[in-house]
Structures are given as structure tokens and as C-alpha cells.
């Protein structure tokens, strides 16, 4: 391309460059779209196969490994049993086990932003989305049944009620780091209110209430309802000004 002199030359060059750029972008977009299409057919097919040929896939260990790796790279859930008659009636078969694994999976994935507490309805909708290929709605009852199958693995994974909401707790108290966060906040004044916790940590209300109640139950917190603003305060007697507490205690004994 020979460069023409003058303003017109510069202008036409700019136009040309713009055209190339537009074309390039176009091609890139088309390429992306095409690939997404292909990927989605790929995924659909894999999902179909996972459902239809489950037992055949299991029989051949070499192919099983390949199939898993395909599913994993494409983001297809290989667990896709239908509920079926027997599962519905007696709760046997792989269906509820699969559901259980998927439920825990969701809880694990969302734990970083909900601290192991999730609304049962939300869990259900996430689960249905995960199993979209089956087009079989997952009811809350299914979730409860699947969770009850996990009971044998120890308590700590349970459905419980806060107010009107049904929540699923996936972190046992012994491993719950939420309490540590609360203790950090309480460090400043020796007490916290529910609002403090919610504001500082950006938690939904249920999470804060649940954590504080548990601390209360463990005997680590004390309630103070007598304050003039009417807000309940949770005191943590052993943190904050530890030495002064100790001195107070000593003077009490001396009296």
C-alpha cells in the first residue's frame, strides 16, 4: 500500500484502518459465537450421554476416565440420574445420593459469601439450574430428603428455621470461622450488636443472628438488654481490656 501525500492520504488511511479493525472485531465475535454454539451442543450431547449410557460408561474404565475429563473441561455435571419410580417411592437408587453431592457442592461454592448458611429456596433454584438438562424440577422436599441421607455423616449439616425462613447450614459449629470475625469486631469495645456485625461484615441478617446465638449457647457471650437505646448487646467477657477485668475480679474477691 503506497502512502499518498496530504490530508486526503491520511484520512483514507485512517478509514482503511478503521475498516480492518471493524472486520477483525466482527470475525472475532463470529468466532466466539460459533464456538459457544459448538460448546453448547457438545455439552448437551455429553449430558444426554451421561443420562442414557450411565451403566455402559461405568463398565469401561478407560473410557470412563476420558468421559469424566470431557465433562469436567466442558463444565458438564456427570451426575444425572432420573428420579424414577423407586426413588420417588422408597428413596432408593442413586438419585438422592447425587442430589446430596450436588447440594454440598453448591454449599461449598457459596460458602465464601454466605458463611455456610443458605436459604432452602435459593438452594433449590441453584440445584435446578445445575441439573437443567433433566428438565425435572427439584422440589424442596427432594432437597430435604437428600440432606437427610447425609445425616449419617455426622450432625452439622441440617435444615433449620430462622423466623419464617428455612435455612440450610453446611458448616458445623466446630469449623465455623464466622465466630472469629465477630470476636475481632468485639475486640474494640468488648461487645457487639447485631447491627454492628451486619454493617461491618456485610452479612445478611440471618447469618449474624445465627452466629451470635451460637456463641451465646456456647457460653462465650452474654446478653445485655438493659441499655437505653433498646438494642441487645452481646458482651464477650474475656476479651477487650483483659487485665482490667482481672483486676476488677481481684478487687471483688478482696471485698
Amino acid at each position: 500500500m503506497r502512502r499518498r501525500p496530504g490530508v486526503a492520504g491520511l484520512q483514507s488511511e485512517a478509514v482503511l484502518r478503521g475498516q480492518y479493525k471493524a472486520l477483525g472485531e466482527n470475525v472475532a465475535r463470529i468466532r466466539m459465537d460459533l464456538m459457544k454454539d459448538q460448546l453448547s451442543t457438545f455439552r448437551n450431547q455429553l449430558e444426554d450421554f451421561a443420562r442414557k449410557h450411565k451403566n455402559d460408561i461405568k463398565k469401561n474404565p478407560v473410557f470412563r476416565a476420558q468421559f469424566h475429563s470431557m465433562c469436567a473441561t466442558c463444565g458438564v455435571d456427570p451426575l444425572a440420574s432420573n428420579k424414577g419410580f423407586w426413588a420417588e417411592l422408597l428413596g432408593i437408587g442413586d438419585f438422592y445420593y447425587e442430589l446430596g453431592v450436588q447440594i454440598v457442592d453448591i454449599c461449598l461454592a457459596t460458602r465464601s459469601h454466605n458463611g455456610g448458611l443458605i436459604d432452602l429456596g435459593e438452594l433449590c433454584s441453584l440445584l435446578s439450574k445445575k441439573r437443567r438438562a433433566l428438565r425435572e424440577p427439584i422440589s424442596e422436599d427432594d432437597c430435604r430428603r437428600a440432606i437427610s441421607k447425609l445425616e449419617i455423616l455426622g450432625s452439622g449439616f441440617e435444615v433449620f428455621t430462622i423466623g419464617k425462613k428455612k435455612m440450610v447450614r453446611s458448616v458445623p459449629t466446630e469449623l465455623n470461622k464466622d465466630h472469629n470475625h465477630i470476636l475481632e469486631i468485639a475486640q474494640a469495645r468488648g461487645y457487639v450488636t447485631i447491627e454492628d456485625v451486619e454493617n461491618e461484615l456485610n452479612w445478611p441478617s440471618g447469618r449474624a443472628v445465627d452466629s451470635l446465638e451460637l456463641l451465646l449457647k456456647e457460653g462465650l457471650a452474654m446478653v445485655d438488654d438493659g441499655h437505653s437505646d433498646g438494642k441487645r448487646r452481646y458482651w464477650f467477657p474475656c476479651i477487650g481490656s483483659m487485665s482490667s477485668d482481672a483486676i476488677d475480679a481481684e478487687s471483688e474477691y478482696n471485698l
Binding site: A50, K54, I57, K58, R64, F67, H68, C71, P78, L79, D94, Y97, E98, G100, V101, V104, D105, L108, K149, L150, I152, L153, G154, G156, F157, S170, V171, P172, L175
Partner: peptide, 26 residues
């Protein structure tokens, strides 16, 4: 430390379609 329920999920995920039941895990 890991809760047993979490291990149940992770282990089964790693096994792909070869699910094990909670009883077997225990």
C-alpha cells in the same frame, strides 16, 4: 480439618460417575 460432609462431596466429585454412598464413606 474438614467436615465429613464436605469430604463426601469432594471425594465423590473426584470419582465422577462412580458415586459412593454416605454409609460406604463412613
Amino acid at each position: 480439618m474438614l467436615a465429613l460432609v464436605d469430604v463426601y462431596c469432594l471425594f465423590n466429585r473426584a470419582r465422577g460417575t462412580e458415586l459412593i454412598s454416605p454409609e460406604d464413606l463412613l
